[in-house]
Design a protein around this nucleic acid. Structure first.
Lengths: 232, 232
DNA sequence: CGTGTTCTTGAATTCAGTCAAACGGTGTGG
DNA sequence: CCACACCGTTTGACTGAATTCAAGAACACG
């Protein structure tokens, strides 16, 4: 039944277990799955592969092990709004209701751990600690969405790009360098801009010496203070 | 202690109790407060009065009885993004963490019912049904935020105003007429537009016969189908 | 080492914003 | 009860930030 829902390679089943996100964070999945002794299945998606569609039944909850995922909504004419990027360690696809409110795709080759939503619900029905944790995770997503509404509704192009860089720096920088998994179009669709506007803003920051490039997707922040100033 | 946190008139305490929203909806507050037998206090705010500030400690959870409330974030230079409007029946100010992520103000004279967050937490710690309900309410807010990100990031001015009208029609229309409690600036700050752009869009819809006015804030939708078409 | 994709840059356009003035509805005081 | 004043709204004219359209350049990949 798994193989019908997912058409992908090797499946590896395990209990609990640790993953290694870029920065040490409380392993939210472990805090649930491990705690309750749920079986977590490991699964892989290729670059650009769909993980689930908008309004699709929410069978599983996911955690990125390696790779990167985008969650988005589409308008009928194809305009896209990416609500968030999911990086190693992040949980995504968690729903309180029965359907996914956004679609999810692998940006690059990605491995996830997943557990059945039903089993989490069941654990939450008896264990108040689990219920509390699920609420806290949804509340965390809400916080991000609220911050992002401010960005989309009121910030300038340069402020949006500055916010994005600081967010990615915090979430995936290793040794001061960040390797962006997503293209300029993805960044634009996350920030409510066109890819050209994103590119121009990055070029301007480069010209001002605020950041350095090693190829378009490897960025070093050279002056976080000035970037903070540009971020309203 | 209540009188120190809130500087307002008559306080009326009661247990559970029903309120009458514009449309019959499951009384979310009752579903918790009533169920657990929590004491709900009634309280009033005058037009433009602050209910709580951004990053303020979340002491209480609120439900609008009569009136209307706006939740918003500010940038340092005063730019404002309203995340949502709270109308009779709506619960607001519910946090999983300890602080309010947005500020809240009464748009017009408003009466709310409120319960201590701590007492809800306590109820949730022993009653899984309560915990489930709190999660569902936060998830409902997240759904709205996700829809609103799409609007703010990707919709045109006319599409935003059309979406707004359909939302308000659904939430507060009585006998086909909606009495908007908020001014054009509030609508603009909700939709990521200026008040002038909102006004122009409304005038255009009026000229096309899609809506009728009875004073600037009383609107009748005359053609919901065409409004839906304008909403991407 | 090509080849296709992604990214950058330029030029022209456009949608919404800004600034400014007039209008109108509401509430108050004469 | 009417006149006035004030605030919110509408409308107009102009501006400007971001988009669109269009080449080229750089990069990743086989």
């Amino acid at each position: 039944m798994l193989t019908q829902t997912f058409n992908a390679p090797a499946i590896k089943t395990q209990i609990g277990g640790k993953i290694a996100p870029a920065h040490p964070v409380s392993d939210q999945f472990g805090a649930i799955a491990g705690h309750v002794g749920l079986v977590a299945t490991e699964f892989s998606y290729r670059k650009e592969e769909e993980i689930y569609g908008e309004d699709e039944s929410a069978e599983y909850v996911y955690q990125v092990v390696t790779g990167a995922v985008r969650s988005y909504k589409l308008l009928s004419d194809g305009r896209r709004q990416i609500g968030s990027f999911h990086l190693p360690g992040d949980v995504f696809g968690l729903e309180s209701g029965t359907t996914h409110r956004l679609a999810a795709e692998a940006i690059i080759d990605t491995t996830v751990r997943l557990v059945k939503r039903a089993s989490l619900e069941k654990a939450a029905a008896t264990d108040v600690q689990v219920a509390r944790k699920l609420w806290a995770m949804t509340a965390g997503e809400l916080r991000h969405a609220e911050d992002h509404m401010l960005l989309l509704g009121r910030k300038t192009a340069m402020e949006r790009v500055a916010t994005f860089l600081l967010e990615m720096d915090r979430r995936l920088a290793v040794a001061g360098m960040m390797a962006l998994p997503m293209c300029r179009r993805d960044i634009g669709d996350y920030l409510g801009l066109t890819l050209e506007t994103v590119s121009r803003a990055l070029s301007q920051l480069h010209a001002q010496g605020i950041l350095g490039f090693s190829g378009a997707r490897h960025i070093v922040l050279r002056n976080r203070a000035r970037l903070h100033n540009l971020d309203a």
